[in-house]
Computed example of a mutant assay.
Amino acid sequence: MKEKPTIVDIAAGDDSFSTLVTALNAADLVSVLDGTGPFTVFAPTNEAFSKIPADTLANLLKPENKAQLQAVLTYHVVSGNIDAATAMTLTEAKTVQGEVINISMNDNKVMINNASVIAADIGARNGVIHVIDTVILPPSVM
């Protein structure tokens, strides 16, 4: 029986997450999200990243801005394994970055801050991925 892939394996194997994978590499976070976990990752698609001005994204990916990039990416991660059914019972969750994300329902969609969850409960060996349509930014970075 083949072992389930990790969160990073799933993201790396899906072209719609190529910008996220590039950012994880630039932030030196691949080994963290490939670790034991469990993690709940609110994973922005390439389309979500395209909503950020190209120069802003390019600037975030520069080595001298690694700490800021790490803050943005870890704001998309919550410790533990939070499935969609559980998420719908919450109003907020503390991120690995340290700040809180707001969780709400809007037109039968789960919202993470201003992002809609567009796919949920993608199971990985070390947690779960929920796909979101917008990159969420921590208040301390905005």
Rank of each mutant, 00 (worst) to 15 (best):
K2A: 13
K2C: 02
E3F: 09
P5K: 03
I7D: 00
V8C: 02
G13F: 02
G13V: 00
D15C: 01
S16Y: 02
S16N: 13
S16D: 11
F17A: 03
S18C: 06
S18N: 13
T19I: 14
T19S: 07
L20N: 05
L20M: 11
V21F: 09
V21A: 08
V21E: 11
T22G: 10
N25R: 15
A26E: 09
A26K: 09
D28Y: 06
D28E: 15
V30D: 02
V30Y: 04
S31I: 01
V32R: 00
L33E: 00
G35M: 04
G35Y: 03
G35H: 01
G35K: 01
G37I: 09
P38L: 08
F39S: 00
F39A: 01
V41S: 01
F42R: 02
F42Y: 09
P44F: 05
N46V: 05
N46G: 05
S50E: 15
K51F: 01
I52H: 02
A54P: 08
L57M: 13
L57C: 06
L57Q: 07
L60W: 05
L61Q: 12
P63F: 06
P63R: 09
E64G: 01
E64S: 04
E64V: 01
N65A: 04
N65Q: 13
A67P: 00
Q68M: 12
Q68Y: 02
L69V: 04
Q70P: 03
Q70T: 11
L73Y: 01
V77M: 00
N81D: 10
D83S: 07
T86S: 15
T89I: 02
L90Q: 14
L90T: 01
A93E: 08
A93Y: 07
K94A: 14
T95A: 10
Q97E: 13
G98V: 08
G98I: 07
E99L: 10
I101Q: 04
N102A: 15
S104W: 12
S104M: 12
S104Y: 13
K109M: 13
M111H: 12
M111W: 12
I112S: 04
N114W: 07
I118C: 10
A119I: 01
A120C: 07
G123T: 10
R125L: 15
R125M: 12
I129P: 03
H130T: 10
I132P: 09
I132W: 11
D133L: 09
T134V: 14
T134S: 09
V135R: 06
V135Q: 08
I136T: 11
P138E: 12
P139T: 08
M142A: 13
M142G: 09
M142L: 13
